[in-house]
Write a protein that binds this DNA or RNA. Structure first.
Lengths: 119, 119
DNA sequence: CCATCAGTTAGCCATTGCGCTAAGTATTTT
DNA sequence: AAAATACTTAGCGCAATGGCTAACTGATGG
């Protein structure tokens, strides 16, 4: 079960990084960091047809970076704060790896294993 | 010129996030975090033809996440420590946005969602 | 009611991404 | 010199991405 959780995390990372690789989507995340907004509010700055924009929103939602809810004919969007946590985790794990190492060329395999950073 | 620099940063982020959206490439970055390695050393764990693997390496290099150098017939790869800096910057800027001011505005969406999507 | 507004659905199209094989180049090694 | 090693180049195929238009649904305002 732990293995499937890890697999989940990995695929989650796939999706999140993929989602963040688009400037429109990063901009939406940035905008929602300042507070919730409707679809058309969000879409307004972008020179793009609405259905195209909606695809970005849909992707952001299915990857868990944002959350939306429709009231009447308006759909409000808000940031999902836990969405970027997987990225932060991966990033700090990454840094933990190379921190403390001197990056010499032609070096033996690291003799000293760093203990886990017990975050 | 400042504007073009910013545009550069943005495109850099595009590339880096794109690069990290692939599990093979993330694994390579992870492996190189422990120390330099040759192409074939890196490729060995993956069930993939070498040219396919090379594309990943090429992408990681052009996005600045790794660095390579060929000596004789062997190409050594190493992590480029500054490569992930743009991500870290973006991420902390993002967190700075929603930290300290998240509760009131976002709550209103959350509340409505709980009411309507009552599982 | 009727029009407008805010999304939504359906489907098309060009480009990119990620895998493959086959064949080539440049070093070692024997 | 010949063979093996370690990539490298070229090109193919298919699925996914990111854009579009046209037409539709379901509120809301006059």
């Amino acid at each position: 079960m732990i293995l499937s959780l890890m697999a989940n995390q990995i695929q989650q990372l796939d999706g999140i990084f993929q989602a963040l690789s688009d400037p429109t989507r990063r901009a939406v995340v940035g905008r929602l960091g300042k507070g919730p907004a409707s679809i058309s509010d969000l879409a307004q700055p972008f020179d793009m047809a609405l259905p195209s924009f909606m695809k970005h929103i849909g992707l952001l939602e299915t990857t868990g970076l944002i959350r939306t809810h429709k009231t009447g004919r308006v759909r409000m969007c808000a940031i999902e704060k836990n969405g970027l946590r997987a990225v932060e985790t991966w990033l700090s794990a990454q840094r933990a790896l190379w921190e403390g190492r001197t990056d010499r060329l032609e070096q033996f395999v690291t003799k000293r294993q760093r203990k886990d950073t017990a975050s």
